[in-house]
């Protein structure tokens, strides 16, 4: 099967599964809601404190929520030996990777877009002017998380203690994404000029490119029977 057609089919398959079962996105949403509530209990914030902390809170909840989605991405393939079917089917494995990255990216981004209004509501944010840049930061950081996360989701699904190992392996590697996303988000929410935090957006772009390429190359070894 041609490369791009495979990508399209993998994305389509994941989206249809999700639309019919509504498992991943609903569990991600509920988990994220609980995380936000826990954060609002644990820091009693006025508006100034909220400005300082909110970028970190946003990205901690997005990352943890993302890990739930990433873990489901391949553990759902274990049912009916779908993983083996992916392994032995005569399709380019890199296309499977890119398809899964895209599907995970879409899931995570839709959850983020659904959640962000809640952040605005709960923490009294004022974001109307910078919405475009904020969306760009969300896109880039989510793509980076999805690029590394999909590789390690495929890896950890084939070992013991997979639910624990995915965050243990993924979070240290995602440190640059976290820092860059938090700093860029904080700059945007503070209303700083773009030049103050443009380096973080560049870092996100570099991270996305490098890790999509590296993981694309390594994925073949992981999805190999």
């Amino acid at each position: 099967m041609p490369f791009f057609k495979t990508i399209r089919w993998i994305v389509w398959k994941d989206l249809v599964c999700e639309l019919r079962s509504r498992e991943t996105i609903s569990s991600m949403l509920f988990f994220a809601l609980i995380v936000i509530l826990v954060f609002s209990f644990s820091f009693s914030m006025d508006q100034d404190a909220a400005r300082q902390l909110i970028a970190g809170i946003i990205w901690v909840s997005f990352t943890f929520t993302g890990i739930i989605g990433l873990g489901k991405s391949f553990s759902s393939e274990l049912q009916n030996d779908c993983l083996e079917a992916l392994q032995i089917s005569p399709i380019p494995k890199g296309a499977v990777y890119l398809g899964k990255v895209l599907a995970n990216f879409l899931f995570m981004l839709s959850v983020e877009i659904l959640l962000f209004p809640l952040f605005i509501l709960f923490f009294n944010l004022d974001v109307v002017e910078e919405l475009g840049i904020l969306l760009l930061v969300f896109l880039l950081a989510t793509l980076g998380l999805s690029a590394v996360g999909t590789l390690f989701s495929a890896l950890t699904v084939q070992i013991r203690a997979r639910e624990v190992m995915l965050p243990v392996l993924l979070l240290p590697l995602a440190v640059p994404v976290m820092i860059a996303a938090v700093e860029a988000t904080r700059g945007t929410l503070n209303g700083d000029p773009y030049a103050f935090y443009s380096q973080w957006i560049q870092l996100l772009v570099v991270f996305d490119i490098i890790f999509t390429v590296v993981s694309f190359w390594l994925f073949e070894l992981i999805l190999d029977s």
Binding site: V148, L151, L155, Q158, I159, L169, L173, F211, V214, S215, L218, L221, I222
Partner: peptide
């Protein structure tokens, strides 16, 4: 798998 992790 270990090699993949070390490379990444």
């Amino acid at each position: 798998y270990a090699a993949v992790l070390a490379i990444v």
